[in-house]
């Protein structure tokens, strides 16, 4: 029998840590989707470099979309900061031991890569800008016209995407104080989850974003460049099926990784086992089993399998479920992770 009382009652720290609420999960989720999109977009660029049709939705429009999402993520991160006016301090230093410092600098590079990638399609997406700043058109042509440059950009997207995806897990993983995060599988898990979420996000975008010829005006053009697909053509069926197939693979890997994470924690120290219990049988079990596993992985796996088998019509539902599950994964890991702590081993 052990009775522990602690007189401390600091806001956001007691009774259990809650310094991060929705903002960090949104940031990690947005980062994960962007990472997935960059990898998928990068892969498409490599194919284009080999001679595939460059006008496919997924190859060149995604950077603009990802650019938007990363802004949402960064916005959420900024909202989470408690000392906002000092945010610039991050870029006055580089702290090699700090994942967050790495992340901050990597994000700058990601921004650059995304902008370069977006540039490829920007003059067409936003004709007004293309006319006013002809150099953009020149740059765009220089990239699209050169398979070598395209390949380079593709690899940059893939590598940065992988880095970003793993980083979102590493950020949590390095914190020894929170046993739930202390598994090396967290990075790969978040990466794969990001890939499936990235594919799902593009799938959803392909369905919901309007298809019209790019408007000519300044404002309309700017907005449509961000929220509109290029041209009236829907993505090719083949491309969509490829996405679905890829997503099935991602989800399957994610399921395996998730299982490994749980087993890994349960078979580790008492603290880790107690942490695993938080999500497996504790207060976060409903979200873990119900939302992440059932709704977010198993249901879309089954639905997409049936879709490919032409037993049910194509819908956007599986993609939406994947997105819900992807966010839930980050939300649960961030919140349950904060609630997890090292179990006192020290005796009297």
């Amino acid at each position: 029998m052990l009775e522990t009382t602690i007189t401390r009652s600091n806001p956001l720290v007691d009774p259990s840590l809650a310094v991060w609420s929705w903002e960090i999960p949104v940031y990690l989720f947005a980062g994960g989707i962007v990472a997935g999109m960059m990898i998928l977009g990068g892969l498409a660029m490599l194919r284009i470099a080999k001679g595939d049709d460059p006008r496919t939705f997924f190859s060149l429009h995604t950077p603009l979309f990802a650019f938007m999402l990363i802004n949402v993520g960064m916005g959420a991160l900024f909202l989470d900061l408690a000392h906002k006016l000092y945010v610039w301090r991050v870029y006055l230093t580089f702290q090699p031991d700090s994942p967050m410092s790495w992340g901050s600098w990597v994000l700058l590079v990601v921004y650059g890569a995304l902008m370069a990638s977006a540039l490829v399609r920007l003059p067409q997406a936003w004709p007004w800008l293309g006319r006013r700043v002809p150099v953009l058109q020149t740059l765009s042509d220089a990239i699209t016209g050169s398979p070598g440059r395209m390949r380079l950009l593709g690899w940059a997207n893939i590598l940065l995407g992988a880095g970003l995806g793993i980083y979102t897990g590493i950020l949590l993983n390095t914190m020894v104080a929170r046993p739930l995060w202390n598994t090396g599988l967290l990075g790969p898990l978040f990466l794969v989850s990001g890939l499936s979420a990235g594919a799902a996000a593009m799938h959803v975008a392909s369905v919901f974003l309007p298809r019209r010829p790019a408007p000519e005006g300044m404002l309309g053009g700017a907005i449509s460049a961000l929220v509109q697909q290029l041209g009236p053509e829907p993505p090719e069926r083949r491309t969509v099926d490829t996405l679905i197939r890829a997503d099935i693979a991602f989800l399957a890997i994610e399921l395996v990784l998730l299982g490994l994470v749980v087993v890994n924690l349960q078979t580790s120290s008492a603290s880790h086992a107690v942490a695993a219990a938080l999500i497996v049988s504790g207060p976060y079990a409903w979200a873990f089993w119900g939302v992440i596993v059932a709704l977010g992985i198993l249901a879309p796996l089954a639905l997409q399998w049936l879709e490919l088998d032409h037993r049910i019509p194509h819908t956007v539902l599986p993609a939406l479920l994947v997105l819900v599950g992807g966010f839930a994964l980050r939300w649960v890991m961030v919140n349950a992770g904060q609630a997890s702590h090292i179990v006192h081993a020290a005796g009297l």
Partner: peptide, 10 residues
Amino acid sequence: CIGCKACIAA
């Protein structure tokens, strides 16, 4: 300090 709270979690 930017108030990112990573140290609190750590």
